[in-house]
């Protein structure tokens, strides 16, 4: 974790410095009869604290005797992130054209296809069909949710 902590600490420090600076621009403390923290006070404290903690993280990583650097973002770890994140994002972008329910069915089919080690086409087809039907009954009929419809009217 040594290298990962160093990079995390540095990135967090930059973001926290920005938050602290922006919060400082908001009112930190109101004066007068009701003297109290202003809208910038808590974000300022939060930002400043993250800055201090990220410095502590960097110092700890520098002092660490750890010699082996464990890889954080390996191919094996990134694969499901890309498949699931990409699949969900793709389906969300299709909502305007296919409607919510059909897009979710397609996403379900895609994820079953991409995440299964042994591809079972019956499972893939079933999920693509069952998700839209089940969700129509649970959300549209049961919970009266208004979901976007697409070019097929569903």
């Amino acid at each position: 974790m040594k290298r990962a902590d160093l990079i995390t600490g540095a990135l967090l420090f930059v973001v926290a410095a920005y938050i602290t600076h922006t919060a400082y621009g908001l009112t930190l403390w109101t004066t007068g009869r009701d003297s109290a923290p202003g809208p910038g006070f808590v974000p300022f404290v939060a930002g400043l604290s993250v800055m201090i903690l990220s410095v502590a993280l960097i110092i700890r990583a520098l002092l660490s005797k750890e010699t082996v650097n464990e890889k954080i973002f390996t191919k094996e770890k990134l694969k499901p992130l890309i498949i699931i994140g990409g699949g969900a994002l793709g389906a969300s972008l299709l909502v305007d054209y296919l409607g919510f329910i059909l897009s979710m069915g397609l996403m379900g089919g895609f994820l079953t296809f991409a995440l299964s080690e042994k591809r079972n086409w019956i499972h893939i087809a079933a999920i693509t069909v069952i998700i839209p039907i089940a969700f129509h009954f649970i959300f549209t009929v049961g919970l009266s949710a208004r979901l976007p419809v697409g070019i097929f009217g569903i």
């Binding site: 699949g87 979710m104 379900g108 079953t112 299964s116 079972n120 499972h123 959300f139 949710a145 979901l147």
Partner: peptide, 19 residues
């Protein structure tokens, strides 16, 4: 199967977020 399960849960989360 994990793929099947995760596909259903993922669809459930997205539809829940939308509603």
């Amino acid at each position: 199967p994990r793929g099947l399960l995760n596909a259903v849960v993922m669809a459930f989360i997205l539809i829940g977020a939308y509603s």
